[in-house]
Design a protein around this nucleic acid. Sequence first.
DNA 1: TTGACTCGTAAGCATTGCCTTACGTATATT
DNA 2: AATATACGTAAGGCAATGCTTACGAGTCAA
Lengths: 110, 110
Amino acid sequence: MVTTSHHAPDIFGAISHPARRRMLDLLIDTDRSVNMIAGQFEMSRPAVSQHLRILLDAGLVTEQRHGRERRYRLVAARLAPVRDWLTHYERFWDHHLMQLQQHLAKDNRK
Amino acid sequence: MVTTSHHAPDIFGAISHPARRRMLDLLIDTDRSVNMIAGQFEMSRPAVSQHLRILLDAGLVTEQRHGRERRYRLVAARLAPVRDWLTHYERFWDHHLMQLQQHLAKDNRK
DNA sequence: TTGACTCGTAAGCATTGCCTTACGTATATT
DNA sequence: AATATACGTAAGGCAATGCTTACGAGTCAA
């Protein structure tokens, strides 16, 4: 079973805490159980659970139950609002993405 | 005189509040005084000042005094930590872009 | 110099955030 | 059936956040 949340998806709030960003980072490679994640942090396991709940509410992770474990999986697409917001600022510093944009625009013209 | 802050630069925390993101957005075009910014928000002017202070502490804006005004200027380069963090997730974007490209390619074939 | 304007800061207050420990529930193991 | 494991949730403490109103300092204009 896969559970997603129906709460207010405050993406920016969710990634504002360093621990939660690290948790997302951990999930880049692979799904992980709560204990696997909690092992990387100083805080108590319930605290980790609460952080994961916030990530779940933001839709940044999904939860799937395997026996008595719950494995969390990254939903990177949910970071799109952050990326999209940043694109407003691209022209100030970015040559990379400008080049990419031009590249894609050129591709579309083909 | 240009003032920058010497406090802990919590970029992610600074952009976690919608009002502060909107303030940054307003500064994309041009520098603005506090009143110009406050005019765009429901909250009191001191509240706006406090938000600007947080942006200043994060280094996301600078402040320069012109007569009795203080004009705030965007420092977009300070968003680099956000952009850099997002790059860890780039390969997921690429995957999406590839899907998009495939989707578009399919449309073109129709 | 008097008064208006721009703005930051202080103080107070309600709400939220983040942590802890204690406990409950579901699943697996013996 | 009894116990261990994995995990969420409740409750509570305490700091941080986010707002308000009141006030004060600096600047401009009459």
